[in-house]
């Protein structure tokens, strides 16, 4: 099958290990409709389906080299002036984002726009506390965004857990699971702080320092191990294109 060919051997090995762990714990996390199985097509032929890998590539991310000199500088300028934010509220802080599109703060004048799909956005705001359940969705979404991509961590919960530092269901440090470009501290930061964070992100992009997507690819195993440590029902491909 072609989908098995383009799977990295290491990735499939990791997936097998996590499935073995799940089985040892006596629990099965892959839903019945996502299991690898054979189905009969309308014309009578038998097709092998593996929904998790049919819809998503399990291929490992690779580092993408920046282009040369002035071209990359121009593209970085364009990226900085056109930040498309994914509209995905992950915690309490997402209520600070709607004021940004209203007349008082109006982030459009800085070239910051909301985008409804991860395929077209290049900035991801992780707002406030992040529960393990949300983190699973965040990882999927982050990996679906095209490189170069940037993460803004909003609120102190993303730095050290904030007031939920001792909770059993929220993570403490976001940068152990996905790479973070800009931290906006506070509980909650005001929309002005968010605008300042966008300004900082623009500076980083223009200076060519916002290459965290490559860092994610470089330290992929470390990030994946951290993610799998806490997302115990791992029922998705390791890299969700």
């Amino acid at each position: 099958m072609s989908e098995e060919k383009d799977m990295n051997p290491k990735v499939s090995e990791m997936l097998a290990r996590s499935e073995a762990n799940a089985k040892a714990a006596g629990k099965k996390f892959v839903r019945p409709e996502d299991e690898e199985r054979e189905v009969v097509a309308p014309d009578g032929s038998i097709i092998k389906v593996n929904p998790i890998y049919d819809y998503f590539s399990g291929a490992r991310p690779t580092e993408e080299k920046p282009r040369n000199g002035i071209v990359e500088k121009f593209l970085n300028w364009a990226r900085a002036e056109s930040i498309w934010v994914l509209g995905f509220g992950t915690g309490c802080g997402s209520i600070e984002i709607p004021p940004l599109v209203t007349p008082r703060f109006d982030m459009f004048r800085f070239g910051v726009q909301m985008r409804p799909t991860p395929r077209q956005s290049n900035a991801f705001i992780i707002s406030g506390y992040l529960s393990v359940k949300t983190l699973k969705r965040v990882i999927r979404t982050y990996e679906q965004m095209p490189s170069p991509k940037y993460v803004l961590a909003l609120g102190s919960c993303t730095i050290n857990g904030g007031m939920y530092y001792d909770s059993y269901s929220t993570i403490n440090r976001l940068d152990h699971y996905i790479p973070v470009d800009v931290y906006i501290a506070g509980c909650m930061p005001r929309p002005e702080a968010l605008l300042a964070g966008f300004g900082k992100l623009k500076e980083l992009i223009k200076a060519g320092k916002a290459e965290k997507a490559n860092e994610y690819a470089r330290n992929f195993d470390w990030y994946k191990a951290n993610q799998k440590k806490i997302v115990k029902d791992w029922n998705m491909p390791d890299y969700n294109w």
Partner: peptide, 28 residues
């Protein structure tokens, strides 16, 4: 934007968006 009382995007924003889209590194 002006109808809803905002300042709105700069007039050259579509060109920037276009160049940014062309400069994306990974595709599916």
């Amino acid at each position: 934007a002006r109808v809803s009382g905002r300042y709105g995007i700069p007039f050259y924003q579509p060109w920037i968006n276009f160049f940014k889209s062309m400069g994306v590194r990974t595709t599916i």
